[in-house]
């Protein structure tokens, strides 16, 4: 099976540790992982902010880069949802009122639609790939901490990953999973919403943070670093001491890591100070 990692532009640039964790994890599970170097961005930010033409161009690029793989794994619910849920809409709806969106991409609209039909069904969020494709829920991880999980909107309501992530977390040795009150409520990130409607975004996050703190968890886990960047940035600003970690990073951790170079020890100090915060 040819498995490609779509690391996403955000992880590539700001959170390489998440990409490394996916590689470590998939190798441990016996997967050969390729990293197609032509990859950049799925186009989500552009499409969702109203720059559809630019978004379509990035989408076309994505489809070219990831054609021919048996599976494409993305450690991001929103990027996977963009590809799987929104590309088909781009192909048959959103461009309709302005056909110009496809003028600059090769193959035009019909070529785009064909590529969408060909590539997107094989794009998975990490938890989907592990549970549905590899058929594992116990990935052999060890992480002795109290963790709460935020499901993120696009995983929950876009991809409908359901309880896949928490099934994976429940099988992590040493990990105590505590339920997050109001888990299915949006954290307020929303891409450019976070700056365009900063006050509302912050109000939403304040409630999310209060819920996180009420769990007494040491670590907030999610499968999307964009939401984690927003929640983590607030947790750090408020000096809560709660650390954020991507699902891949927890699943990649094993007994060997404790105290080692890939240590997942929760830092005792304000994470913002030691440069770990998102």
């Amino acid at each position: 099976m040819r498995v490609a990692l779509f690391v996403t532009c955000l992880n590539d640039t700001l959170f390489p540790g998440t990409g490394k964790a996916v590689v470590t994890l998939l190798r441990r599970l016996g997967c050969e992982v390729e990293f197609p170097e032509g990859q950049t961005c799925c186009g989500q930010m552009h499409v969702n902010t109203g720059y559809r033409d630019e978004g379509v161009r990035l989408a076309r690029h994505f489809l070219d880069v990831f054609a021919g793989y048996d599976a494409v794994v993305a450690p991001s619910g929103s990027c996977a949802a963009m590809v799987r849920e929104q590309y088909p809409k781009l192909a048959d709806g959103m461009g309709a009122t302005r056909p110009g969106a496809f003028a600059s991409v090769h193959g035009g609209r019909s070529g785009f639609a064909r590529a969408v039909a060909e590539v997107t069904p094989r794009v998975y969020d990490l938890s989907e790939f592990l549970v549905d494709v590899l058929g594992v829920t116990d990935v052999g991880a060890y992480f002795p901490h109290r963790v709460t999980y935020h499901p993120t909107c696009h995983s929950l309501r876009g991809l409908r990953v359901g309880d896949r992530p928490t099934r994976l977390l429940r099988n992590v040795r040493g990990l105590e999973l505590v339920p997050l009150p109001g888990a299915d409520e949006c954290c307020g990130f929303g891409g450019t919403f976070a700056v365009k409607n900063a006050a509302v975004s912050a109000a939403m996050c304040a409630d999310k943070v209060a819920n996180i703190e009420s769990t007494g968890a040491e670590v907030l886990c999610a499968a999307d670093n964009s939401c984690l960047m927003h929640i983590g940035g607030t947790l750090s600003r408020q000096r809560t001491g709660v650390r954020v970690m991507h699902l891949a990073e927890i699943l990649a951790a094993t007994e060997r890591d404790v105290g080692g170079p890939m240590s997942r020890e929760v830092p005792a100090v304000d994470p913002a100070v030691n440069g770990e915060a998102r």
Binding site: T13, L14, F15, A194, V195, K196, A198, A202, C205, A206, M229, H230, G232, G233, T234, S236, R237, A272, G275, E276, A277, R278
Partner: peptide, 11 residues
């Protein structure tokens, strides 16, 4: 608008 309430991740 971001840093009013949130820290920025380290590059």
């Amino acid at each position: 608008a971001w840093t009013d309430t949130r820290d920025v991740p380290a590059v």
